[in-house]
Design a protein around this nucleic acid. Sequence first.
DNA 1: TTGTAAGCGTTATCAA
DNA 2: TTGATAACGCTTACAA
Lengths: 348, 348
Amino acid sequence: MITVKEIAKMCDVSPSTVSNILNGKTNMTEETRNRVLKVVQETGYKPNYYAQGMRRTNNKTICIITEELCQSFSTPAIVESIMAHAESSGYRTFLINMSMYEKWKKAYNGELGNEHLLEENTAPAFLEAEAVRADGVIYVAAHGRILDCVPNDYDIPVVFGYGMSKDNIYKSVVIDDSNSSEEIIDYLISRGHKKIGVIGGKPDNFHTMWRMEGYKDSLKKNNIKFDKNIIEYGDWERASGEKAAEKLIAKGVKTIFCMNDLMAAGAYDCARKKDLIVGKDISIFGFDNREISEYLYPTLSTSEIMLEKIGIKCCELIIEEIENEDFRNTKKEPYRIMCEITHRDSVV
Amino acid sequence: MITVKEIAKMCDVSPSTVSNILNGKTNMTEETRNRVLKVVQETGYKPNYYAQGMRRTNNKTICIITEELCQSFSTPAIVESIMAHAESSGYRTFLINMSMYEKWKKAYNGELGNEHLLEENTAPAFLEAEAVRADGVIYVAAHGRILDCVPNDYDIPVVFGYGMSKDNIYKSVVIDDSNSSEEIIDYLISRGHKKIGVIGGKPDNFHTMWRMEGYKDSLKKNNIKFDKNIIEYGDWERASGEKAAEKLIAKGVKTIFCMNDLMAAGAYDCARKKDLIVGKDISIFGFDNREISEYLYPTLSTSEIMLEKIGIKCCELIIEEIENEDFRNTKKEPYRIMCEITHRDSVV
DNA sequence: TTGTAAGCGTTATCAA
DNA sequence: TTGATAACGCTTACAA
């Protein structure tokens, strides 16, 4: 493997000069710079990653910790986006995947009283990030969740994506649940819908709560009285959507806002069993814009989570914290990214 | 950060002894070993990744190069599987994602005469793997494809996942297209279907070709004459499935084997327009078992690509090559992983 | 069984 | 503007 020393010899300069040139210093003649760069180019020299890591204080490395890579529909796109943005900002990226879903299928939704399992298992991931000399860590949650998992004495900047840190100790980038939800209800009302039933996720989940807020805000704005009888809660899974839809339909509801696409699919199941045609006899609106929403029949109108934007924002925030000491002290309230409505055929 | 030196001082031994103990050497008293390990435990000492990497010849690092992380439905699961298996085998993992789809939307299917773009852009990824001092590289293709992208003088072992290397220069792990396809047709025939139409992918694609072989094998085995009139080709996308299905149905075909779930969804679209009920008037069988196949109505019978198995096999192969010089010279024919049929409601 | 010392390739410091 | 040199933390001969 070719080294700085060899490059230096070839160019008749010292290793330090080569290093300086490679690192964007400007204290050398244009001529030497060009000479060296040419040789670097020709030889295809690549600095040794490990030697750099050992010597450098600032390592230009962002560590991405994911709870779950493949079982979480949102994670791959966020990760890809972070990686792309990091690369174009001159940062290397290191991915640690905890495979939470595989390991603790029950634990990771956090409602079985074993949330501690999550903390126990994030600890090693954060240590690994230190060992890898990351300048910053982006923690990508599999679900929206409030997290309290960073070691106490952690001195690397951390940003949370999708989930958020407890008590806003760290910055985070999440969905703008409330406004996105409000936008959906505004739209439905604009189409003439008044009695809008809701199938929420788990009732104590913050997505559920915030989206309920948006729902209420829209209702109020449009002078429609809130009716708690047409609010049902599921568990984000398809089957729970079907059950909830049954109850709502029994109450005469003909317009249902489902807090995710999976439960919307469940609502479709219910409609089908009752011989109600979605998009005609009944209107269903989803949330997430997962791939399935285009394969349901009729296609599902829904609101897309802008995963790429979330990734980019995470990346921007962490780089700002890395490169600007002052920035670390700026406010930690979550940054909220609006979802974007996609109109399809499930709404009258 | 705590170092071997400090551990050594604390234990009243030399750094080399600490290092030896940590690396599983056995030339020391049980007593010293325990003393040291205890301190290591207590202090939470972690060896510096970079210092190790610089000294070691064998770095215990596998580099995963992906063409596409989030746009390829197969990649995340394969990557997660590789990572999990690598970790449990004592290997660190380093992910380089090329984001091919984003960068060269047209190029990456390889049929626009710009396959060279792919090579140009894999080169840096392979160089990066060298810079990272990987002991082995697993290249995960976004689509099944024959690849010719490893630099000529590459001396790190490489294994291809999902795609395969040109002329079998490197080992690869792919789907057992032929046998999986044969199994599907056997099943359809066992259900009494005789005139089985096919919607293939692109005609020159090796998946398409191999699956056609399996189709023919099954037909022959079951004494059914091959009829090339009921073979149509699409481009793997939904719309092409609809078009192809139209032609087949016009020819009186009532049983269609689609070479992926997306085109099967297209066949559903066609059936719906013709008021044919899938699973009753017409039978449709898919391939892949993507998430959507459970959300189509009726649910789609299909054959699942065992992504986790592919990942594990890739990992096993690369570790064998890394740890066993001899193994590198063993045969390079692709390892084929059978798909597994999932019965749902789309077949009479 | 344990310790000493050299060296991996880079960057940072300081001197020329 | 350039170069000499030390240092990062670890592993590994080799010496004790």
